[in-house]
Nucleic acid binder design. Structure first.
Lengths: 226, 226
DNA sequence: ATGTAAAACGAACGTTCGTGCTATATAGAG
DNA sequence: CTCTATATAGCACGAACGTTCGTTTTACAT
């Protein structure tokens, strides 16, 4: 809704113009909220609790969002930004194809293990919480997870095009399997705190990549082992 | 608190004696609760809402459990019974070893698809909800999921002993992978409602079993294809 | 320095939550 | 049929929930 104005005010906004303070606070709220929510759930996160954590009033905080649902959507959006920054961007520095596919999985597992979100993968938790709760929050979560699956799938296709993965191989199927192994590792780690979960997932993914790789692909995988 | 008395009254209790009505009601409450909880979560399920569903008073219902936490534990226990009845027992009619391993996975996927629990696998949902919420509920959920992993793992070991699966194969690893694929299918189905999720999981498990099977094991798998 | 719009506050709203207490209804033993 | 243990209901509680409102504080453009 502020889009038209954005174009005229964009210069002053960028450097901390008149509307800057509100935006800064909003960002601080979301930063705190996303971590609490990843552990306690988007519904379990309470506005009062969040306000307490930030030493501000419930009403002052609430004013930044019209409703709790809007707050939840904003949290999801923030989590997406973090996910892109921490996983997607770094992985896209790897070369297109097999290498990027592996890097995507590898970094994903690292990002869960590192505890960037207190409750493991934010979206795994959010999806489980909202999968039977229709509404814009659920829709947005489903959309974002689709993006992730598509990214995996595209990496498979590109690896095939580059002659690194066999062509008689359904990209959707492989994306499903890798995503499952990642979610499984996340799930096991959250429940038992066992770091081996990640190495198990890595082993499974690696084994699968190797078995589906062409000769050229295998050479590539071997070259990047450290 | 009624433990001492139980020992003297146990005979009459068994056949539906004086304390029967309470037990019957309790069971009816849990039966309803487990389905609501699988969709809305153990915390999202409210005592008032549950009482309304069963056309009884909040307090009357509440009297059957000392606290909400006890109710939650009882719900988890009920879900476990259902899981045993619907998955474990049927699968244990298959012969020990490779066949049972496959049957366990196959029936598990079928049980999620059939919608026995409204929100998919009860324990997947409960584990995600409680994994960062210490307490007896979380502990019990973790324990039950351990049972399931152990069951899968034992089936692998038995298949190895029977010479149906290669011996250079970590049972824990395979159990992890199968569990992940099942959770992945459940997750995808809940989020997108796509039945293909299950066939994808089945394909992945089948492929893996075939590739790890000995000659004898492969013969066995082929014989049971329909 | 002043005016003004944005941002934060404090108090209160109506609900709903889990949880007690006390009384009534009911069912099975004698 | 009566008695008594059990099961259910009614009512109220304090706390916490999301949300609204009118006021006060803050920060920036002029």
């Amino acid at each position: 809704m502020a889009k038209a104005r954005l174009q005229t005010e964009v210069e002053e906004k960028q450097v901390g113009g008149r509307k800057a303070q509100g935006e800064r606070t909003r960002q601080a709220i979301l930063e705190a909220a996303v971590h609490i929510a990843s552990a306690e759930g988007l519904e379990g996160l309470t506005i009062g609790r969040l306000a307490l954590e930030l030493s501000m009033s419930k009403s002052g905080l609430f004013a930044h969002f019209g409703s709790k649902e809007e707050l939840q959507v904003a949290i999801v959006e923030t989590a997406r930004s973090i996910f892109i920054r921490e996983v997607i961007k770094p992985a896209f520095e790897a070369n297109e194809g097999l290498l990027r596919l592996w890097t995507l999985c590898d970094i994903w597992l690292g990002y869960v293990q590192s505890g960037i979100f207190r409750g493991g993968c934010f979206f795994a938790a959010a999806a489980a919480e909202f999968d039977s709760r229709p509404g814009i929050v659920r829709d947005r979560i489903a959309e974002i997870m689709r993006e992730w699956l598509s990214t995996l799938q595209r990496a498979v296709t590109e690896a095939q095009k580059a002659g690194q993965l066999k062509v008689d191989l359904d990209p959707t199927q492989l994306a499903f399997e890798f995503n499952s192994l990642e979610l499984g590792a996340n799930w096991e780690y959250q429940l038992y705190g066992d770091d081996q979960s990640f190495s198990r997932a890595r082993a499974a993914i690696n084994q699968r990549l190797t078995s589906y790789a062409t000769a050229a692909g295998r050479r590539l995988l071997k070259a990047t082992e450290t």
